[in-house]
Computed example of a mutant assay.
Amino acid sequence: MKSSLRNYNVQFSGLKDGLHQVSFEIGAEFFENFEYSLIESGEVLIDMELDKKPNMLTTRYKVKGVVNTTCDRCADPLELPVEGAFKLVFKFGKEQSDNEELIVLPPEAYMLEMAPYFYEFINVLLPARKVHEEGECNEEMVTLISQYSINSSDPDDEDDFEDDWDEDEEE
């Protein structure tokens, strides 16, 4: 694990059974640790509630903040709010689990490496299509993209495109 991500580790050995609260501030340096990240930077607060029991840890998360990414339409910078809640259960054992909310830890584990989970939480909160509000896109870029795009939204253009192929086949 990269050293800058160690700030997101939670050592649970030595904690008494019961509820514990931990907060994490995630900034630009966090996202730099993930190759090919859709998120360039951001300011996200994650509040974690950890309920420690002898054989398991139940964790709940509240995620809230803003991330900076790229608009899927015009490729300009885009700031998006993210907000959501998650739950994970960490159980001690050797058998694997098919449930994505249940993570099996080896009996000798003493710490949770939360950075990958935090990264996943934030990415899950992004919309499938990340675009500016109507009228806020870089119009110059949108015009260029539509000018050079093969897939036109004008049905008449598609017919012309098909006709071009038909003419080539007849020759």
Rank of each mutant, 00 (worst) to 15 (best):
I122V: 04
E101Y: 14
G93C: 05
G84Q: 04
E79H: 15
F90R: 05
Y110L: 11
P107M: 05
R73A: 04
F86W: 14
V124N: 12
I122N: 02
I103T: 10
D72Y: 07
F90Q: 03
G84E: 01
K94S: 09
V82Q: 10
L105M: 01
L88A: 02
I103Y: 08
P81M: 06
L80G: 10
E101Q: 13
V66F: 13
P107H: 10
G84F: 03
E100G: 07
L105A: 01
F86V: 04
Y110D: 08
E79G: 11
D76S: 13
T70A: 03
E100F: 13
P81I: 08
N99W: 07
P116C: 01
F92W: 07
L88K: 15
K87P: 10
D98N: 14
E83Y: 13
A85W: 13
F118R: 14
T69N: 04
A109R: 15
N123W: 11
M114G: 09
N68T: 11
I103E: 00
K91Y: 09
L105P: 02
T69M: 03
N123F: 07
C71A: 02
V66G: 09
Y110P: 14
V82S: 08
P116M: 02
I122F: 00
E83A: 09
V66Q: 13
G93A: 03
V82L: 06
